[in-house]
Nucleic acid binder design. Structure first.
Length: 561
RNA sequence: GCUCCAUUCGUCUAGCGGUCCAGGACGUGGCCCUCUCAAGGCCAAAACACGGGUUCGAUUCCCGUAUGGAGCACCA
């Protein structure tokens, strides 16, 4: 008992800084009352989860709304799982989503740090953890343990056989009350211990705190002697790193996934042991999806949509994904968006207490809907740039198509985009070929080769006449005049002037005006659903219209129908 | 097994004891508009997991049950 100081000296002979020294070196932030400093603390495992983007989005927004900072800290204490390039990937993802950190690793080059609380990479903060660990050992609140993996495993099996709670605690904690001599002997034999907390046993207290999302929580006090420092590299486990780093970085709002909730009592205990105030916690429910008939958290192994790369590949605008996530975070975002159709979404105030406590299901249909709405607000120029930028990485053919004639591409994207009700038919950049392909000869040819012409059931002679008439398109003619002319032509051919007239006596006509126009539409585009025919012809231009009519006529002539 | 968290239309959710025979949005169906789509307008179907309490009164509070989720590592 009285040997705690000696034990600490034995374990940490080179540690000269005390926790208080570190606290002095990293003083409280000079921020206004109510300012909340938050962080995103990923481990560099080569994968950025969409849930991380959501947590970062919320963290950054809340920090900025309150006048605090948003930090990116790298949790690289498990060197085995680390993958090259991960940090760059994490930063790039954040930047892509307009979530640039204010502090920490702020540039794609991980050497570039910003902020007064550096270093922001845990593997570089060893001394700080050691200082805190040493003090805990001195106070008898932590101790070294030399158990091997095999021993731990045996204990677990024994516990299972006896049907008691698994873990390292109370009487199962072999090294909890080992003598100084015993420790010394092992150390001399070259063994490296882990450092574990000495949790109260039996734990009878409760860990109580108010979660900013879930409300008041009342959990059983921690009684597990969790590992604080690992034996190999002496780096901390998540739990200890969280407590030390968030204390020293003066983070006062910890937003994290709710898989951390069960270990919150440990954290509460640790903050208490080091005598530092508990930050506010906000535990975010994970995004889930249906797997057969059961719901589960989206996983990086099974679900492509868990990976941010999925959204890049599909070509969803960042704004769309952001607004979808905002919508999941605060469902009243939609009402706000409706009331403020053109305001940047950064003006929307994110409220933690408005976040749902249960896991929401990922809904691609909703994402698509939001994305269509957003793309509808873009100008032709913006769409062109975004699409080209996307295609350069994911669709080389589209790059050629779009850049062959930039002015023409812009005209295409401008079709039905300038009026009160812009077209909402582009879901994401990978959807461009489907939505706009008909305007581009190369894509058009490909589609015809693959699918032919889906002409309506109209006799061949009429088909030909309609197409020929279409080739006579005069771009100088105003739309209403053109429509009137086509209507008159329809009557000549024996089509009803409108659907209503046709319905009254279907046998008296070959079809109605729409049927006739459909022939021309299909002839020009190869599709039955297209933008406004008049605008389409204007955009295609006389030459292209004539070529396409010839091509359709040839197709009919070949007897392909 | 243990501990925690959750459970309102298909989905995201509003609701914080009477205002709810439960509101909105996406999706679905119908109608209108219309040269086809897209959009837009109008309308419709669609939910408080179950059982006990507490209360004059429960979607709202409490307790069970069921179901789902998360966690129980020298991973974060």
């Amino acid at each position: 008992m009285t040997d705690h100081k000696a034990l600490a000296a034995l374990l940490f002979p080179d540690v000269t800084m005390t926790p208080q020294d570190w606290l002095n070196r990293y003083p409280s932030r000079a921020l206004s009352e109510g300012a909340q400093t938050t962080r995103f603390a990923p481990s560099p495992t080569g994968f950025v989860h969409i849930g991380s983007i959501m947590a970062s989005l919320v963290s950054r927004r809340v920090a900025h709304q309150t006048g605090g900072a948003f930090i990116l800290r790298i949790e690289d204490t498990d060197k085995k799982r680390e993958q090259d390039g991960s940090v760059e990937m994490i930063v790039r993802s954040l930047l892509n989503f307009d979530l640039a950190p204010d502090e920490g690793i702020v540039a794609v080059d991980p050497e570039v740090e910003a902020g007064d609380y550096a270093p922001y990479t845990q593997s570089e903060r060893g001394e700080m953890y050691w200082s805190f660990a040493r003090e805990l050992v001195e106070k008898g609140l932590a101790y070294p343990a030399f158990d091997t993996e095999v021993e731990l495993d045996q204990t677990r099996k024994l516990q299972e056989a006896q049907r008691v709670k698994p873990g390292y605690y109370g009487r199962w904690a072999r090294w909890r009350d080992a003598s100084l001599e015993e420790v010394e002997a092992r150390l001399e034999a070259g063994e490296r211990p882990v450092i574990r907390v000495r949790a109260p046993f039996p734990a009878e207290g409760r860990a109580k705190f108010v979660d900013a999302i879930k409300g008041p929580l009342d959990l059983p006090e921690n009684e597990q002697d969790a590992v604080l420092l690992k034996s190999g590299n002496r780096l901390p486990t998540y739990h200890f790193a969280h407590v030390v780093d968030d204390t020293l970085m003066r983070v006062n709002l910890v937003i994290r996934g709710d898989e951390w909730l069960p270990s919150a009592p440990l954290h509460v205990q640790l903050f208490d042991y080091i005598g530092q105030p508990l930050p506010t916690y906000a535990h975010v429910a994970p995004i889930a999806k249906m797997d057969g008939s059961s719901k589960r958290k989206i996983s990086k192994r099974k679900d492509p949509e868990a990976n941010v790369a999925y959204y890049y590949e599909q070509g969803y605008p960042v704004q769309a994904v952001t607004e979808y996530l905002l919508n999941l975070a605060n469902s009243d975002f939609y009402d706000w968006r409706k009331a403020n159709p053109t305001a940047p979404n950064s003006e929307f105030e994110v409220k933690l207490d408005r976040m749902g406590v249960a896991s929401p299901l990922f809904d691609p249909v909703k994402l698509n809907d939001i994305s269509k709405d957003i793309i509808a607000t873009y100008t032709a120029e913006q769409i062109y740039n975004y699409a080209l930028n996307w295609a350069e990485q994911y669709n080389p053919r589209l790059v050629d198509v779009l850049s062959a004639d930039r002015a023409y591409s812009l005209r295409v994207f401008n079709v039905e985009r300038t009026g009160e009700a812009p077209r909402k038919d582009i879901m994401n950049w990978s959807d461009i070929e489907r939505a706009c392909g008909l305007f581009f000869d190369e894509l058009f040819s490909g589609a015809i080769a693959a699918n032919g012409y889906p002409f309506p059931k109209v006799e061949i002679a009429a088909l030909q006449k309609i197409l020929e008439r279409g080739a006579a398109f005069d771009p100088a003619q105003p739309k209403e005049e053109w429509l009137a002319g086509m209507r008159a032509f329809a009557a000549e051919l024996g089509f009803a002037p409108d659907a209503k007239t046709f319905k009254k006596d279907p046998t008296a006509f070959k079809g109605h005006f729409g049927d006739m126009m459909m022939v021309l539409r299909v002839g020009l585009s190869g599709k039955t659903n297209t933008p406004d025919l008049y605008e389409m012809q204007q955009t295609l231009g006389v030459k292209r219209v004539q070529e396409r009519v010839q091509r359709a006529l040839a197709y009919i002539g070949e007897g392909a129908l």
